[in-house]
Amino acid sequence: MQASLVRVMLLQLITVYLAHPDRLCGASSIVNRVRSILSGAILTGAALSLAGCGALNRGFLFPAGPIAGAIRHEWIVVCFIMLFVIGPVLLLVPLVAWHYRLSNTRSAYRPQWGFSWSLEGLIWIPPSAIVVILAAFLWRDTHRLDPYKRLPGHALEIQAIAADWKWIFIYPEQGIASVNRLVIPAGRPVHLSLTSATVMQSILMPRLAGQIYAMAGMRTQLSLQADRSGRFLGENVQFNGMGFQNEKFAVDAMDGAEYAHWLAEMHAEPDRLGATEYETLTRRTTLPHPLAFGAVEPDLFDHVVMLAQKSGHALEVEKLPALPLPMAVSRDVPHDQGMPP
């Protein structure tokens, strides 16, 4: 709400300025023209940067959890340090080139000058020092933000299986499963174990946690947490075929009561995720809406990991008889802000 208010105010300010440039300056027409071009550029720039904020609030720069928050903090640190590296170059290139242009007869010309120890020191030592500083931050934060590292607190265990073109989330302790919807309790750490029923995929929940690959026959891990309740985007970002763009899911962070209510609802779901349902799910299809299973075959996740190691005939499932699950390859799915309903 606040962001949109600021946006409106800024735009109004610029419009007023654009409409009455003469109020601020009564100089010649050239100045006015330059001014109007400049304000046009400012308007476009401002509009774009505001639109940018509108887009950027989908990403980790507007974090909704401690991991994304820490990454955003590190981003700011890295950007700040890097200003000292790029700043001088961005200034020096145009300044030096322009000052020493051929037509400037007052600038010095020393065609045989080609070395200086002090300058060498200046271009080797400070950049090296900056890299050392960055390296220290990098070492600390890479360990601190290792996706495998568990967050403090009793984590909720969830197993994620990447299928073509959907995500299967199994809650082993609760004995339920959800497809294309990840529900997590807000304020409590979550520990994801991932594998793939198909090709390599990469899970990303931009406002919550970074990526980790899901690979067949292997188990990767990802820790995440949402600070507050809300709906966030989750997606596969590693291209995996024709339904890739539709492989998005909602991450619903719920507060305690709401989460408990959801669990109760899930337990009441009649469908059970067994071997045949799993095999149907792993067909190369997209889903029009999320699925819920009130019961799950025990150790399904481990079984999937082992299956790939043994035979893992990824396409043979195509030959199996279809179950009446709501599958669709059609893409006319209503979407709201990059997220399936």
Partner: peptide, 15 residues
């Protein structure tokens, strides 16, 4: 340099 920093890379890799 942003991409070389693993935690930042986790966020923008493949994007």
């Amino acid at each position: 340099v942003i991409l070389a920093t693993p935690p930042l890379n986790y966020m923008v890799h493949n994007t």
